[in-house]
């Protein structure tokens, strides 16, 4: 589905990503863990094609095609969908108007929550953390994605709501072989989604990729990210 080869990225003259390699197959869930400023959001922005991120080396393949020169909307239409951690406000446009413009299939907020008043509110204007996540997931679902990227979908949620969100992701978003790249620095969500592969990113490099998310998370919990480099248990 997605294959990243030796990707290096700069933003504002600073080298952020240094030789990233990542492969996500159809229907797989991958989690990317890392502390703040490790380069996780830069990677998602680069996969989406945001102009702020300059690719200085490497390739990104999506369904076999090198998408490195594709504009953002072409990537979205091809099936890459990003749920933003901090989506910007779109004043004067309601969520239902935005869905009308962007959805490739009919989705309803009801699939996620009973309260449909969210549809009549301006996009991301005064949304609570939970409402933002619902709005992002509804939009992403409407795009008929093949690869979903959830950027810190767990941020700011207590365990109860985290379980709810994870349940929605599992049972509503990840159907029919949709792949998931889950960006997080907390890790609790892993328990609910049970990723196939977990990656640890530090200072712009993926320093570890493992099929054993429990082992990885336990180690991070115990020793912190900085100890990952020295951890003898992580490598498969």
């Amino acid at each position: 589905m997605l294959k990243i080869n030796n990707l290096s990225v700069e933003t504002k003259g600073r080298k952020i990503l240094k030789g990233i390699n990542l492969e996500i197959k159809k229907g797989e869930i991958h989690a990317l863990l890392g502390p703040n400023a490790s380069g996780k959001t830069t990677l998602t922005g680069t996969i989406m094609g945001f102009a702020d991120y300059k690719v200085s080396g490497g390739e990104i393949f999506f369904q076999g095609e090198n998408i490195i020169n594709w504009p953002i909307e072409k990537r979205a239409k091809a099936g890459i969908a990003l749920a933003f951690q901090y989506p910007p406000a779109v004043k004067g446009i309601t969520l239902s108007q935005l869905l009308e413009k962007t959805s490739q299939r009919k989705v309803t907020v009801k699939e996620f929550i009973a309260d449909t008043k969210l549809l009549d509110r301006e996009v991301n204007v005064g949304f609570s953390g939970g409402e933002r996540k619902i709005s992002e997931m509804v939009q992403v679902m409407g795009l008929n994605p093949k690869l979903v990227i959830l950027d810190e979908i767990d941020a700011g949620l207590d365990l109860k709501n985290l379980a709810k969100v994870a349940d929605l992701v599992k049972n509503k978003l990840l159907l029919n072989g949709v792949s998931l790249l889950l960006i997080t620095h907390r890790g609790e969500i892993l328990r609910f989604l049970e990723p196939n592969v977990v990656h640890v990113m530090l200072k712009g490099k993926i320093i570890c990729s493992s099929h054993h998310w429990r082992k990885v998370w336990r180690t991070i919990n115990k020793f912190g990210y900085e100890k990952c480099k020295q951890c003898p248990f992580l490598a498969d």
Binding site: E73, V90, G92, I93
Partner: peptide, 30 residues
């Protein structure tokens, strides 16, 4: 228009011009 807003709408499949039009329409009101 902030680049961030354009990125957001383009990541929903709108072209840059469509995103600008939508933001302008929202600004001008219904």
């Amino acid at each position: 228009i902030a680049e961030e807003s354009l990125n957001y709408l383009r990541s929903r499949g709108l072209t840059e011009d469509e995103a600008i039009d939508l933001i302008a329409a929202g600004f001008l009101g219904e």
